[in-house]
């Protein structure tokens, strides 16, 4: 019993150390990026009309005169205290900006991922089951288009037809002006907030706004998830335990879903986590096109205004999300794969 607790705590210790080292590496990386990019943060604040005196004062205020390692130490200790610095543009702490913008991204990419999973996994399974038949060709064609067509082009085309021409969905933004400010912000997600408040009109308006960008992200994640599901299922369906299941008299559905997919699900966890990560980070283009007040939009506009604290803070958050998703998929591996479970404990 004690031995078991010891191995558990050792395991947890090793895990925590891995996370700490990864996050530290992330901090080093963002710090280095901040120094390497040809942007003068002092100039960004004072503007190019300021006198040398003012420039010098701000230069010292920002700690730029100190050696690099001291600057790095100040940066890391700030991060540890939740201080990501001030945004020059919004004049607010970067952290509170990020907390405001992140939920919108999370909402959009979560719905996108759900669409990608709900459609992508069955599509991949069907393609593998009917290998080299029409469902396979169809899924491969859909995935190929998803891989090749630029997201901004598809986004603009979608807006042009579905919003401008047909008026089936609402345009850019999260809500129509008419509905803004009705629902109190509690979770950061307008869909959840309005549902909680029982404001269904607001809810459906938000829905009509989110559906197009979410479908767009969902399509790209479908292309990836579907393709990977297909190749993993092809691998599993050729295994001998699949023949065993058929010999037992199991139905084709049981064979494919109960046996083969149950095995393919193990590597799929990583695929889905990676896809989620890239949706959270890669929604920059989609958020820009749809004026979605998310972290991608925030990052892009900060970058255009040379607001380095905001850019680095956003990068750090995206990186941390990736680390977290990787940890989560590692943990799920243990749940799904009895062989991995043994290695871990």
């Amino acid at each position: 019993m004690i031995l078991r607790l010891l191995t558990y705590s050792r395991h947890a210790g090793a895990w925590a150390a891995t996370v700490a080292i990864t996050l530290f590496g992330l901090a080093v990386l963002t710090f280095v990026i901040g120094r390497v990019v040809p942007i003068d943060p002092v100039l960004a604040i004072v503007g190019d009309k300021a006198s040398p005196d003012v420039y010098q004062r701000v230069f010292i205020e920002l700690g730029r005169d100190k050696p690099l390692y001291v600057q790095f130490a100040t940066y890391v200790s700030g991060l540890l205290h939740g201080d990501f610095g001030q945004s020059f543009v919004t004049s607010r702490p970067v952290l509170s900006d990020l907390l405001d913008f992140f939920p919108a991204t999370l909402e959009l990419s979560t719905i996108g991922l759900l669409i990608g999973m709900v459609l992508g996994i069955p599509a991949g399974v069907a393609a593998a089951y009917w290998h080299e038949k029409w469902p396979d060709h169809l899924v491969r064609l859909i995935a190929l288009v998803g891989y090749s067509v630029p997201v901004f082009w598809l986004g603009l085309v979608g807006l042009f037809f579905l919003y401008f021409k047909l008026d089936w969905v609402s345009g850019p933004g999260q809500l129509d002006v008419f509905y803004q400010g009705i629902v109190e912000n509690r979770t950061g997600s307008i869909l959840i907030d309005s549902a909680l408040a029982g404001e269904w009109e607001v809810f459906w308006n938000a829905m009509s706004h989110i559906i197009l960008p979410a479908l767009l992200l969902g399509y790209y994640s479908l292309a990836y998830i579907g393709r990977m599901t297909r190749s993993m299922m092809l691998d599993q369906l050729n295994r001998e335990y699949v023949l065993t299941a058929r010999l037992k008299g199991a139905s084709e559905f049981e064979v494919v879903v109960g046996h083969a997919l149950r095995n393919a699900a193990i590597p799929l966890v990583t695929i889905v986590a990676l896809s989620y990560g890239s949706l959270l980070e890669g929604s920059v283009l989609v958020e820009t096109i749809f004026s979605w007040p998310g972290i991608g939009n925030y990052l892009a506009s900060s970058l255009f205004r040379a607001d380095m604290n905001a850019v680095l803070g956003g990068t750090l958050v995206v990186g941390a999300v990736f680390v977290f998703l990787n940890m989560l998929s590692d943990a799920l591996y243990g749940v799904l794969d009895p062989r991995a479970r043994e290695h871990l404990s």
């Binding site: 001998e240 335990y241 065993t244 037992k248 008299g249």
Partner: peptide
């Protein structure tokens, strides 16, 4: 034929390392 399999006729395969489902 599926009803016959496993019920009235069945088959043992060569290597249990591959013929048993590893995650069940």
């Amino acid at each position: 034929r599926r009803k016959l399999r496993g019920g009235r006729m069945s088959m043992i395969l060569q290597d249990p390392k591959f013929s048993l489902n590893p995650v069940l």
